[in-house]
Design a protein around this nucleic acid. Sequence first.
DNA 1: CTCATATCAGGCTTACTGACATCT
DNA 2: CAGATGTCAGTAGGCCTGATATGA
Lengths: 161, 161
Amino acid sequence: MKNPSEDTAAPWKALPSWLLTQTADHAHHLVSEGFNAVEARGYHYRLLATLEGLGPSSQATLSRQSGIHVSDMVATINELAERGYVERTPDMTDRRRNVISLTPSGKRHLHRLEKRLSKTQDELLAPLTVDERKELTELLSRLLSYHNSVTGNPENDWQDP
Amino acid sequence: MKNPSEDTAAPWKALPSWLLTQTADHAHHLVSEGFNAVEARGYHYRLLATLEGLGPSSQATLSRQSGIHVSDMVATINELAERGYVERTPDMTDRRRNVISLTPSGKRHLHRLEKRLSKTQDELLAPLTVDERKELTELLSRLLSYHNSVTGNPENDWQDP
DNA sequence: CTCATATCAGGCTTACTGACATCT
DNA sequence: CAGATGTCAGTAGGCCTGATATGA
């Protein structure tokens, strides 16, 4: 039998790490495509979603809650502000800070992105049954929280000044 | 109950695409660390493994079989040749080609990398039982080959001139 | 001529690092 | 003073595009 996955020339194709990174790559492509179709990218969604959950916040707070690096917040907010989805106003009570807030148009955009995203999940999991999807999600969740805790990753809620 | 994963400020953390890309990120880090410890990187392993499976081959053939882009073959082979792991000699029968071959030292290096890699798989799957590892591998394999075929990805063996 | 091969230069994305000025 | 905040510049890995020179 010809079994390409265990081909002598490509033994790595059976490794969990390979399966994981390759599948994630497909996932990433699907998500990016979906976002691209409305001139958005992953950071836009994450920032808008965080903003909806928190209400108006400083960039540092948004960075912590969204997991987007502070250095990348600047450009992300610039892009969203250009499109009128967020507003950046100086914080009068602490003049180091900007207060970022979600505009009505930004909220609509966010919901658009959420719909895209949920469609993408279906495309991604297309070949799996409902039970298998649950199983996969469960296993990945366990792996992720394990490695997050091992590497000292936040992954959770914590109060912010 | 405080359930951070369904936090209103980070709804995406429950999405399969997120779990997948994040877990893959951890996997990627673990693999890279392992390779870094012996001054190697992913491309080195893939090229050496392909070379062991095929025997001496042209760069174009290696590119197709390893999935490493032709443009990146040059630098990869340079790096491996500097370290004495492969040799690049002109092909007398087709003067466009170079013949790349594995040195004994390169073979030893490859086996070193393979050992690292197999340790890494264990680290990666640490929190899962044997059955769960099989289940995960199976689900990911199905996802991967589905998406590979959908996007018209090779993933298999085919003859080479 | 067309095609394959090897090379080079560069882009893109997602993180992250480091430096810096400003303010608390 | 230490520490937080926002900004800017730059890195690195993996993947990819395009241009070019050479030869089959």
